[in-house]
């Protein structure tokens, strides 16, 4: 709803006028943030279903879960955790830099965030999904791993693939949002008085991180 007046020489963010149904830009910012926090709540509840399935089957089949956990390499998961944590820092820094008007630094930070997102996906697919899938460690009826010790191991892989793939989809969506913010920062859309989308994208990226912070120990570390 950005209404842009036609005065020249100023960046978009300096000319930004809040949507007409809000009383002020501050009210608009508050409303967008409230709305986005509500949206993040829905995301938490969405993943809540996966976590719930994880805990129920863990209780029912602790041995299969232990076996499954041993089949995951904690170093790869740990590397991805580190990648995401770095990206969280750079994302937070980019918001700070836009607020302060350090646009070059903001863009570098956003770029590094984007790279980290890509690295996460690359590690996930190239070093985890493809090697596992090719030896038959697949979900449910597709399971074809000859060395399974417990009958419920396919179920473990179902929960693993559902949880991590839905999370990976969120990482991809987050990367699209970050790329958009990067482009628009370059074009001068955001600045110290108008950075709603940068902040909101940051919130989303932190949530994606946070979900991984829970997925990682549950899948890789707890035996």
């Amino acid at each position: 709803m950005s209404t842009l007046s036609s005065s020249s020489g100023k960046s978009f963010w300096q000319r930004y006028v809040h949507a007409s149904h809000f009383r002020s830009a501050a009210e608009e910012f508050d409303a967008v943030k409230l709305g986005f926090w509500l949206f993040l709540t829905t995301e938490v509840l969405l993943f809540g279903g996966i976590f719930c399935a994880y805990f129920i089957f863990r209780t029912l089949y602790p041995d299969a879960w232990r076996e499954g956990s041993h089949l995951l390499d904690w170093r790869l998961g740990g590397l991805n955790t580190a990648v995401l944590l770095i990206s969280s820092y750079t994302m937070a820094m980019s918001i700070y830099c836009v607020q302060k008007g350090y646009f070059t630094r903001a863009k570098w930070n956003l770029f590094i965030t984007l790279l980290c997102g890509a690295a996460f996906i690359f590690i996930k697919i190239a070093y985890e999904y493809i090697p596992k899938w090719s030896v038959g460690k697949r979900p449910g009826a597709l399971f074809d791993y000859p060395f399974a010790e417990h009958a419920q191991l396919p179920l473990w892989w179902s929960v693993y693939y559902c949880g991590t793939s839905i999370h990976a989809a969120h990482v991809l969506i987050g990367m699209v949002l970050i790329a958009r913010v990067l482009y628009r920062t370059h074009k001068g859309y955001y600045g110290p008085t108008h950075y709603t989308m940068v902040e909101v994208t940051g919130l989303y990226w932190h949530l994606v991180d946070l979900i991984w912070i829970f997925l990682f120990p549950l899948l890789y570390l707890i035996h």
Binding site: L45, L46, G49, I56
Partner: peptide, 29 residues
Amino acid sequence: TPVIGITLLLLAFERIFRIGIFDPALGGD
């Protein structure tokens, strides 16, 4: 609503890939 979202998503996976989360033959419930 997000809870039905994940439920129906899992149901679609179950239907398409037979992931077994709701299928007792594969240990699901």
